[in-house]
Design a protein around this nucleic acid. Structure first.
Length: 795
DNA sequence: AAATGACGGGG
DNA sequence: GTGTACGTCATTT
């Protein structure tokens, strides 16, 4: 028997002689990676019987016979009540699906539970195994494999992870690269030990370039490099949706392997929901794009912008449309492209370093592998945490809602957070405060949980009634959710106390990340209970939390207004926007201290930021100008490619004029000029061309949208039209539906475009709401000089 | 009014 | 893979 000290990086299973062996990918404290198997875990799920459990158990055994491994009677808590259930053991994870379908309609079965928890995830939960925590594992060797016999969590730091960031460049003479035709020209890699490589099949003479014979050889050399370096984490930017799916397509076409897995497994491009996910077995593949989107509020998430905002690094951008020219022309431009490509990998590595500690901490806390946790929303993290606690306490895990139940929940509305109608228009000097942390305190102090909820009559005597609602929560027994949440809040308080004492920088960083992770989870419980897909969804609970919160939030607003004489210009659920008059900057601190002292424990009001100017349109739609001169927009954007560039540009410029210059009249003039320009035909083809992707074959469309009609016209002229193509089209003059007037950009002359469409359906919608907030209707914007006089008479 | 389909990031 | 995002918007039906 041997002992391995290390941390779990990834987990999955392998089928050996039709049995499922858990595979644990472990990094030991000496930096070696190894695979540890466990063949002692079996797939299972639960059945809730309608009547007599033993009778049901017998009939299941009789009917299903050898297709199940066994039926075991056991007791679980269901909504806090001890209940007899049957545990159905399967032979193999893949059998669970058919068994579940069978048992769902089996006489005497009320419901089937815990049937959709993936095998490796279930294993981590049941064995109380936490990824990226330090473990002492007892192992033994058998048949040439290492098996886990037992483990315990040890004190001390986790071994350092070896990380690489990757990025590919693709030849794209037709703008959008087509994986069937356009080769990958470079694969760049930067790792945590300072290695920097660009694999390519042209030689630029730069020392970091590994010159390969062909595209296929380039992919093979890259794969070989990754496997030799044996990275624990592979990071990228949008690699789930672009780099790995593209590489995989190319590899397949060229007949080479993209075997980046730790056991040489191919990269698997699967699906997490609707979104593609590239899985690299044995490692964590971390796509930073969704992560950055979760943590940083930006108008644009193009890498250059993200890197500037998050890391403060100014990075050059090579125009995607021109990229292939750099490749073709060779020489200095090829060198520039190689540098650019490597720079992308480098900054991606830096981005990863920014977020990896937090996600490692979340992975351990949530108890699921880094690869998976990096793709979870905070609500999903809460759910996995709850599932783990449920398993530890013998609580039966509720099911996800099925189709109709989900529909029903989605329609269930309730009064949410308190929203203060914004003071519409431009406002100077706005401070934003955040009270998200109020919500977890409410859940804990009022014991808000599906199992403690009482409605109506039962609440008559209760001291724990919800304001404005006919609900109350029992205080006799602590609910499952408040109990877990309390432990998170207490742990966070403890970490913060330690942080107060800690001197050493690396310890401080660890504690800071730990408190941040605990905060993210704690703050997500309220949203989780009101999330229609949640296993522990309960409208009444979310509704009650919101009702309690409204009371406290109004109180905070009253303090701002009455005690400090500050104007509250907007507030939505967990935020508060306040005007800070000139020469009263100190009031921010005073206000925070006052609020945080007057409601001890409950509210931890935080200062989110100060903005030079704000434009409020309606609730949830506003734009802010930061002190550094950045414009942050919420709920107003049309920076999408299925809008004409002229509409996007006009909106951007309007917001800029309003926020930077504060000149309403100038903004109005600007829009009118654009409108006039469109009327007079003084626009370029590029400004009015709309780009929309054809996601499937023309035949499979049920409705004839503009881009589908344009695609049809392309095909009629003998062009090859394939799914995934970006259709470029212009709306032309006429009286038919918009679609019928959509023509491919290639087939249109400039004077054919329909000014009316571009004004009414593009420019005006993009700016109308903004102007309404400052008192200008669409007519005022629409009216060019000539038309103003006409309209006056005809309206 | 309901259904349908597209957006994001990547090159 | 014991699986199937998300929230929002325009246009068609």
């Amino acid at each position: 028997m041997n002992v391995v000290k290390g941390a779990l990086i990834d987990a999955d299973y392998e089928t050996v002689d039709s049995r499922a062996f858990l595979r644990l990918f472990v990094k030991d404290v000496r930096g070696r990676s190894l695979v540890i198997y466990d063949d002692s875990f079996l797939p299972y799920f639960y059945v809730l019987p309608e009547g007599e459990p033993e009778r049901l158990a017998e009939s299941i055994r009789r009917e299903l016979g050898d297709s199940i491994r066994g039926v075991v009677r056991c007791t679980m808590r269901v909504m806090g009540r001890e209940t007899e259930v049957l545990l159905i053991q399967a032979h193999h994870p893949r059998d669970v699906r058919t068994l579940r379908e069978r048992l769902r309609v089996f006489p005497g079965v009320r419901s089937v539970h815990e049937h959709d928890i993936l095998f490796a995830r279930r294993y981590l939960i049941d064995r109380r195994l936490r990824p990226l925590s330090l473990l002492e594992m007892e192992v033994e060797e058998r048949d040439g494999r290492v098996f886990l016999r037992g483990f315990r969590e040890a004190a001390g730091g986790v071994p350092e992870l070896k990380v690489a960031a990757v990025d590919i460049e693709v030849y794209n003479p037709k703008m959008a690269p087509r994986s069937r035709e356009d080769p990958v020209i470079m694969i760049s890699l930067a790792d945590s030990e300072g290695r920097e490589r660009v694999f390519s099949w042209k030689d630029s003479g730069q020392e970091f370039v590994e010159v390969c014979e062909s595209e296929g050889e380039m992919i093979e050399r890259f794969v070989e490099f990754v496997r030799k370096q044996d990275y624990d984490v592979i990071a990228g930017y949008n690699t789930d949706s672009f780099d790995f799916p593209y590489l995989k397509e190319r590899a397949k076409l060229l007949g080479v392997s993209l075997g980046l897995g730790r056991g040489g497994e191919e990269v698997e491009v699967g699906r997490q929901g609707m979104m593609p996910e590239a899985r690299i077995r044995g490692r964590a593949h971390v796509d930073l794009y969704p992560i950055v989107r979760k943590h940083v509020r930006l108008n644009s998430y193009v890498l250059e912008n993200v890197v500037e905002e998050v890391l403060g690094i100014e990075k050059e951008k090579i125009d995607g449309a021109r990229l292939f020219e750099y490749w073709d022309s060779g020489g200095e431009r090829l060198e520039a492209l190689m540098r650019y490509s490597l720079e992308d990998a480098r900054v991606t590595l830096r981005l990863l370093e920014e977020f990896l500690p937090l996600y490692m901490e979340l992975s351990t806390l949530v108890g699921q592998c880094l690869n998976d946790v990096s793709r979870m929303t905070s609500g999903q993290m809460v759910e996995w945490l709850l599932m783990r606690f449920a398993s530890e306490r013998g609580e039966l895990i509720p099911n996800h809602p099925e189709g109709r139940e989900y529909e029903r929940r989605s329609r269930e509305t309730y009064t949410g957070g308190y929203v203060r109608e914004p003071r519409r228009g431009l406002v100077e000097r706005v401070a934003v405060f955040d009270f998200r942390s109020l919500y977890p305190s409410i859940i804990v102090s009022h014991n808000i949980d599906p199992s403690t909820l009482m409605v109506g009559e039962a609440c008559r005597e209760s001291e724990n009634r919800v304001p404005e609602l006919d609900y109350c929560f029992s205080t006799e027994r602590t609910g499952f959710i408040p109990e877990i949440l309390r432990s998170l809040i207490e742990r966070r308080a403890e970490v913060k106390r330690e942080l107060g004492r800690a001197k050493e920088e690396s310890l401080r960083r660890r504690l800071e990340v730990s408190q941040q992770a605990l905060k993210i989870l704690a703050n997500s419980f309220y949203g989780y209970m009101g999330y229609p897909r949640a296993r522990w969804y309960r409208r009444e609970c979310a509704e009650s939390v919101a009702a309690f919160a409204r009371k406290y939030i109004r109180e905070v607003m009253r303090i701002a207004e009455e005690r400090f004489g500050l104007e509250v210009v907007y507030g939505d659920t967990d935020s508060l926007f306040v005007v800070i008059p000139e020469h009263r900057e100190g009031v921010v601190e005073e206000f925070l201290r006052c609020v945080n002292e007057s409601m001890p424990g409950m509210i931890e009001l935080e200062f989110e930021g100060f903005y030079r100017r704000a434009l409020f349109v309606t609730k949830k739609r506003y734009a802010l100008l930061t002190q550094s001169g950045k414009i942050v927009v919420k709920g107003l954007e049309f920076v999408r490619r299925d809008w004409a560039p002229i509409a996007r540009e006009t909106q951007r410029e309007v917001l800029r004029i309003l926020l930077e210059e504060g000149d309403v009249e100038k903004a109005v003039r600007f829009v009118r000029e654009v409108v006039e320009r469109i009327r007079r035909g003084e626009v370029s083809m590029e400004e009015i061309t709309i780009y929309t992707q054809l996601t499937k074959s023309i035949e499979s469309y049920r409705s004839m949208e503009p881009h589908v009609v344009a695609a049809k016209r392309l095909r009629d002229r003998g062009m090859a039209v394939t799914p995934g193509m970006i259709i470029r089209y212009v709306i032309t003059k006429g009286r038919e539906s918009i679609s019928k007037r959509a023509k491919p950009a290639e087939q249109v002359k400039l004077d054919e475009y329909d000014p009316n469409y571009y004004i009414e359906n593009q420019i005006l919608p993009a700016v109308q709401r903004i102007f309404e907030a400052i008192g200008y209707g669409a007519d005022y914007l629409r009216a060019g000089i000539k038309q103003t006089s006409l309209r006056k008479w005809f309206n």
